[in-house]
């Protein structure tokens, strides 16, 4: 009976996860490309020109998915970190550190595209608005996580210390968000909400496809990075020395 179930914990070991990740990477790249093509086509050719903002609004198709991913990746990172602390699995910590650079990149991208969008629309590169500020602080949290892990030589301690920081951060993110929200708000209200949406339907689809593209891209690069981390950390083991790509 038990034999029919997939033994998920089998893949908690770097040795068995390494080839699995290798097999999954092309699929996620393929999905990212497919969603990207559809998303870009929808966002550039199908979505109508915005009545108020003209063509400039089209940066939303990069800006919003990037900021969604930056927040989502932090949650995933914290979940991996918590899993690593609770179950003491090595792979969880590796996944958390593999996700951090992508999350930081997404946060940076969200800020950068936001600045490009803000200049023509609001006439300024930067405002101290609640969402922008909390995105900036999220970026700092990512940098802190990466810096802490980089400062610790022992990878196991780096994983665990990073995990605690990620969990403290994830408790703090909503507090920071609401504190800056009450502090100042100028950002346009959320354009997307369940049930009622103030956007054209095609715009929404374009954004969703772009978000899926970003999501698949994030998974693909995180898996590539975790493979590199596995090779680095397990370099002393027999199975790594037996790998074809290592031998050649």
């Amino acid at each position: 009976m038990n034999n029919k179930l997939i033994h998920w914990f089998k893949y908690a070991s770097p040795q068995s996860f390494y080839p699995l990740a290798g097999k999954m990477i092309p699929w996620f790249w393929g999905l990212a490309a497919a969603f990207g093509v559809v998303g870009l086509w929808l966002s550039f050719f199908v979505a109508p020109t915005d009545a108020q903002q003209g063509e400039g609004y089209r940066i939303i198709f990069v800006h919003v998915p990037a900021s969604w991913m930056s927040m989502f990746i932090y949650l995933v990172l914290a979940a991996w970190a918590g899993l690593g602390l609770a179950l003491n699995t090595r792979l969880s910590g590796m996944m958390a550190s593999a996700l951090a650079p992508t999350g930081a990149l997404m946060a940076f991208l969200a800020l950068w595209t936001g600045a490009f969008w803000g200049k023509p629309m609001w006439g300024t590169w930067w405002v101290w608005d609640a969402r922008i500020t909390s995105e900036l602080i999220l970026f700092f949290l990512y940098l802190g996580f990466i810096a802490l892990q980089a400062a610790i030589d022992d990878p196991r301690r780096a994983d665990k210390a990073g995990a605690i920081l990620a969990l403290v951060g994830v408790v703090n993110v909503p507090i920071i968000y609401f504190s800056v929200k009450w502090w100042n708000t100028l950002h346009q209200g959320s354009s997307v909400s369940v049930g009622k949406s103030s956007m054209a339907v095609t715009m929404l689809w374009g954004m969703l496809f772009m978000a899926l593209c970003f999501w698949m891209y994030s998974i693909a690069v995180a898996l590539m990075r975790v493979r590199a981390i596995i090779l680095e950390r397990e370099a002393h083991t027999e199975w790594v020395k037996e790998l074809n790509e290592v031998k050649s």
């Binding site: 602080i137 700092f140 949290l141 940098l143 802190g144 810096a147 802490l148 920081l165 403290v168 951060g169 703090n172 507090i175 920071i176 504190s179 800056v180 009450w182 502090w183």
Partner: peptide, 14 residues
């Protein structure tokens, strides 16, 4: 300071 200062933001604001 890199780790702690972002977490101090709510205290500073309020």
């Amino acid at each position: 300071s890199l780790l702690v200062l972002p977490l101090y933001v709510p205290a500073l604001i309020f």
